[in-house]
Design a binder for these strands. Structure first.
Lengths: 247, 247
DNA sequence: GAAATAGTGTCTGTAAGACATTATATT
DNA sequence: AATATAATGTCTTACAGACACTATTTC
């Protein structure tokens, strides 16, 4: 380990301009019967780009605090939401000369799904205002800071695609949950109804759920409660959901 | 555009240490009836990490040459292979304090599939020796430079997973190709046989192929030639390949 | 016509979609 | 008992897998 200084003194061949390196988060939750995403408002200070615009939470990698990109994402998530998420997936990276007026920059984007119940939005710090926005309220096409509108669009697309053949939406619910609740989560994310019978067969066949006993969720009848198998953060189904009408 | 200098003079709040930013490539091809991957040998020079070890082709982002990460990947691919690939997908990014002895670094990894016929390996430059290695010859578990063994493992996993439900292997063949050739490409990537009848139905149903007329590929009988639909770099199948025996 | 490969047809199995029906709780 | 929701059953359809069969070319 030679140790890197800024500017690097010990390695002449490394004396070239380095891009800025950031990590951004796309945090999804279910709130008010809608799929929502967490955004923060850019500060209104001199030299800060996109003042007052909404942006994905995130920021610069701190080479002294963060052992890795994933660790950096976890840290930022914890700072904003107080949550240690069990599911954090890399969405991809975006980098170029034009995306940040401060210079050539590359961001590593992670996305996560959280039950709203576990979240307590942290005020202050770099993110004056953190706020939830419904994904289908036009946020995707509003002018977010940087290229975050594009990133959010890709994130939503990836989420919806993946929900068609994985157990992802289970992470949106506090445990234990019932199958009707899980089905509703799927329907809210996909934006369409799903057949109950097929849904249940499919979920139970994937064996990523464990029974926890009947639950009263305010319905006339008790429903079986389930929690996710601890060792299986994500189950893959043999086919995608796809209504007949598509063909 | 404020313009970034090194060190930045105009933005006190940006005077922190920046990670190194690189782009690496996982280049797959079909060669000698095997799935192979392109590796380059690390130079044996003072201050260069992992001297003589094999590594994925790639290198530092050049903020003056490269408009974006994708452009950087295209440039490096062209430099090494002389190819302008029609298919370049981001695999993900790897970053951390420990992966490069020169300091905190993050690499953005792209992968591509090429017909071997179009490639002419470029000698000299930063990559003394570029060479093809069969994926299943233990390269995945050899000690590659940096964390490239891990990256390669993920790339192979992603490729094999995606081949189960997409038209990816078509990019491994020079056009036009025949369906038997395409099937062989699938079988080589997947490492198992695939049923002919189902395969053909599936490929033709996906309608990403255009007939180009019968071809003589040295077989006793002519076969229909196909090329990929120009506007469809990747077709998705409704289900994955999966032999009965799995269930 | 023998041989080898290209291409097609038939049967079966799996799992989803559609929708009807039964079960269980509350009022 | 009425009602609302939970859970199950039945029928159909799509499409892959297995495997047998036909077609076309060269020798």
């Amino acid at each position: 380990m030679t140790g890197t200084t800024h500017p690097p003194k010990d390695a002449p061949e490394l004396r070239f301009e380095r891009p800025l390196t950031t990590v951004d988060l796309v945090v999804f939750t279910l709130r008010e019967d809608q799929l929502q995403v967490l955004l923060v408002q850019r500060p209104d200070r001199p030299k800060e780009p996109f003042p007052n615009d909404w942006a994905l939470p995130g920021g610069f990698v701190d080479v002294h605090k963060d052992a890795s990109l994933q660790a950096c994402a976890q840290r930022k998530l914890k700072e904003k939401t107080g949550v240690d998420t069990p599911y954090l997936e890399q969405l991809g990276s975006w980098g170029g000369a034009a995306r940040d007026p401060r210079g050539w920059s590359a961001t590593h984007v992670y996305f996560t799904l959280l039950p709203i119940t576990g979240v307590t939005l942290q005020e202050g710090g770099n993110s004056q205002d953190a706020q939830w926005f419904p994904v289908d309220s036009g946020v995707q096409h509003q002018t977010l800071a940087f290229d975050h509108a594009e990133i959010l669009r890709v994130a939503v697309q990836r989420l919806r695609a993946k929900v068609e053949y994985t157990s992802l939406p289970a992470h949106l619910l506090p445990q234990p949950f019932t199958l009707p609740q899980l089905q509703k989560a799927y329907e809210l994310v996909l934006g369409r109804a799903v057949d109950k019978s097929g849904f249940r067969t499919r979920m139970l066949a994937a064996s990523f759920l464990e029974e926890t006993g009947p639950i009263d969720v305010g319905a006339p009848r008790l429903a079986m409660g389930y929690r996710m198998n601890a060792d299986q953060p994500l189950a893959y189904f043999p086919r995608t959901f796809s209504p007949r009408s598509d063909h």
